[in-house]
Amino acid sequence: MPNRPAAAQMLPLALSVEVFLLGLSVAFGPVASAYTLEGLRWGGNPSSGCCASFNVQFQTGMVSSDITSWNNGIAAWGGSAANVVYVTRSNSPLVVSDTYRSDIDWDGLTNYAGSSGQFTSVRAYLNHYYTQSYSATVSQGVAAHELGHAVGLGHSAASCALMLPTTPGRDSCGAWIPKADDIAGMNSLY
């Protein structure tokens, strides 16, 4: 047996494991999520487990390609391991819409109101001025990104995530569907 100081010989197993894990994180870097949360969540949904259900109202008069993008964004979340289901309904406080504005620099935007840590209303937009020139997958990514904001996800600092703050960042890594960091963030909320 190697010669060790008496204190080291007496380390409890739990502390030994913590020291070992600390050594791993120093050697290989910390394992951490890069997601952030908006600070609000929808009430009436489970805090963990499957599945939180969100009613989504489609604003009338949208361009058909933006309706397709919203539907594909909903399907992207539905096909993921996230504990969420989006359901199209009328009279929902979560409304998706579109606009056509050349005087602004965003292709998607989510506005929300809340009280006591819960959303009371959300309106998410696609800006058709930009999305009209996007491929179907890129537009789907914008819609899915905004749907993430609409239920409580903030921007991610991950290297490749749906919740990256810019469309070129998401597009460069193929994040048109929820990635591991997005799913981890969603599952931490619901």
Rank of each mutant, 00 (worst) to 15 (best):
L37P: 09
Q132G: 13
F54Q: 05
N72H: 02
G73K: 03
W176L: 00
D103V: 06
S92C: 11
S53K: 13
K179S: 10
T88W: 00
V26T: 11
S188G: 12
S53V: 15
S92I: 10
V31I: 14
N72L: 04
V84A: 08
I67K: 02
W77N: 05
A52N: 03
T166A: 11
D171W: 05
G108I: 07
Y125S: 02
V19W: 02
P165A: 13
G61S: 10
Y35C: 11
S156V: 12
G79V: 06
P5S: 05
A34D: 13
L189W: 04
M186W: 11
E146D: 04
F20W: 10
G152Y: 04
P12H: 05
Y129L: 01
F20L: 14
S133C: 00
G49K: 04
C50T: 11
G29Q: 03
D105S: 15
S116M: 09
L109G: 01
D105R: 07
T137D: 15
P12Q: 04
L15P: 03
G141S: 11
C160A: 07
S102M: 00
D107E: 13
V122M: 12
A8V: 13
S25E: 14
S159N: 14
L189H: 06
A75L: 09
L22I: 07
V63R: 11
A143G: 10
S25M: 13
G43R: 10
T131W: 00
G39P: 14
W42I: 07
P178T: 07
G79I: 05
G43Q: 10
Y86V: 07
P46V: 08
S172F: 06
A52F: 05
Y112T: 13
A143W: 04
Y35L: 08
L164R: 12
G154F: 02
V19C: 02
H145Y: 09
M62P: 06
L109W: 15
D171H: 12
G79F: 02
L37N: 09
L162K: 11
R170C: 07
L21D: 06
Q140G: 10
S92Q: 04
Y100W: 08
G185A: 05
S121V: 10
H155A: 10
S25C: 08
G185F: 03
A136N: 14
G39M: 10
Y112R: 11
Q132C: 00
M10D: 12
Y100D: 14
I183D: 01
G78Q: 06
T131I: 02
C173W: 03
S172G: 13
G49E: 04
A76L: 05
E38T: 15
